[in-house]
């Protein structure tokens, strides 16, 4: 089968690529476009390490085909900071030591960003349920939840 040509928008920029019909968006991002911030922890939709935003919704990019991205808007961890200025979530993650190994971090940040966009003042429980699709094996989630709640505070104050 001939590769498919896809034109899409990634982190605000128009991007075109070729991909196979059965190739996942995660593989396209990582192997074809060099965007290795999204990680593959399972390839079955169970860990959330590959989370990206597709038209405003968090998806597991391991469950999306590269071809499906045509004409849509994708945001990845690489687009979260504004140049040298980190997003408040990124800052709070570092400040609260909400990462140990850091491999889950890109996926969790992406999921948290969408969570806060929907619900700017989540309760602890809402954060916990909002991030239940993202596995972290290192931290026990405590500092992650605190960092997200603190970032929500900062972002509300900033508005």
């Amino acid at each position: 089968m001939a590769p498919i040509t896809v034109t899409t928008t990634i982190n605000g920029e128009a991007v075109s690529y070729l991909c196979e019909g059965d190739e996942t968006l995660l593989d396209v991002l990582r192997d074809r476009l060099g965007l290795t911030g999204a990680k593959e922890g399972c390839s079955t939709g169970d860990c959330g390490a590959c989370s990206v935003v597709l038209d405003g919704r968090v998806v597991c990019s391991c469950l999306v085909l590269g071809a499906e991205a045509a004409g849509r808007e994708i945001e990845t961890i690489e687009g979260m900071a504004d140049g040298e200025t980190l997003h408040p979530l990124q800052e709070k993650f570092i400040e609260h030591a909400a990462l140990q190994c850091g491999v889950c971090t890109p996926g969790i940040l992406v999921a948290a960003q969408v969570l806060l966009a929907r619900n700017p003042s989540p309760s602890e429980e809402e954060v916990r349920f909002g991030l239940a699709g993202n596995l972290c094996r290192c931290t026990g989630y405590d500092k992650i939840v605190r960092a997200v709640l603190d970032a929500a505070d900062t972002m509300r104050d900033g508005q």
Binding site: T36, G37, I77, E78, L86, I94, A97
Partner: peptide, 21 residues
């Protein structure tokens, strides 16, 4: 004390290179 970790920015921006990267 609790200084910021030196590899923090790489790890929150997706720049850190792990095994498969």
């Amino acid at each position: 004390t609790r200084p910021l970790r030196p590899d923090g920015i790489d790890k929150v921006t997706g720049r850190a290179r792990f095994g498969a990267d």
